[in-house]
Amino acid sequence: MNDQELLQKITAKDQNAFKELVDRFQSLVFHTCFNLIGNREHAEDVAQEVFLQIYKTAKKFRHECKLSTWIYRISVNRALNFIRDNRKFRWLQSIDSFPGDETRITPAFSSLNLNSHDALMRENERKELIRSLLDSLPEKQKAAFILHKMSGLSYQEIAEVLEVSLSTVEARIHRAKINLQKALISCLKKI
């Protein structure tokens, strides 16, 4: 079954076709959400929301781009919305729980125990460091960088997913690399 047939059946609320779409794109959607959000449970939750949106809006897909591009786009938008909403929620929570506590404005790497080189080399701490580095990026740079570096999309594909020009993608990835380089150097120098 090709993409067009699959979507036609989903529009007609065919559950088998929808299951096939989920099987085909589950990994793509989950990894995109996970790489952007950085938490398994939340990423799974958002990935399910992505599929619910696809099920609901399948008839709106005009085949102007590849199905995978459209699914990437929904995944990125949903994940970024989740991060935005969660950030507001976490900020409100921090005000509620720690009135006057200055630790809430500490830099992104504050939670890491970077006392020794050995500690850094431990797998979990390295994952945490990478997550902190990615989370320190502005969301547009983060999305472009993750799609390129982790999802392995070309600049042209990223431009289609994010609906921006090729030069914008190049600029965002270039800036992301510079920012990550600076952040990682300052982090490594502290060890």
């Binding site: 989920v22 990894h31 996970f34 990478i130 982790m150 990682l184 150097i185 490594l188």
Partner: peptide
């Protein structure tokens, strides 16, 4: 040496798959 080690890890991402109950929950 340290920078390259971490940078290459960033590129690989985490090898993690959705749970087996993904479809049922959906």
């Amino acid at each position: 040496k340290r920078f390259t080690k971490i940078w290459q890890k960033i590129g690989r991402g985490e090898q993690i798959e959705p749970s087996s109950s993904f479809w049922i929950e959906l």
